[in-house]
């Protein structure tokens, strides 16, 4: 039987549900941000005519 989640001390530091460690999760977030900025850069260049850049 699983112990009731609400009875656990809330300061327990569990591992993340994916990517193994929290540091891996943080790294994935930073890479995701870099990817977003690159995609927005492409979006700006692709749809803004050269004349007005």
């Amino acid at each position: 039987m699983q112990p009731d989640e609400r009875l656990r001390p809330h300061s327990v530091d569990d591992p993340p549900p994916f990517l193994g460690t929290w540091n891996n999760v943080y790294l994935a977030i930073v890479l995701y941000l870099a990817l977003l900025i690159a995609a927005f850069g492409w979006f700006t260049l692709a749809f803004t005519p050269v004349v007005i850049r």
């Binding site: 989640e5 656990r8 809330h10 300061s11 327990v12 530091d13 569990d14 591992p15 993340p16």
Partner: peptide, 10 residues
């Protein structure tokens, strides 16, 4: 209000 540190982080 998170039930653990992990829940708050997520």
């Amino acid at each position: 209000t998170g039930r653990s540190i992990a829940q708050s982080r997520l």
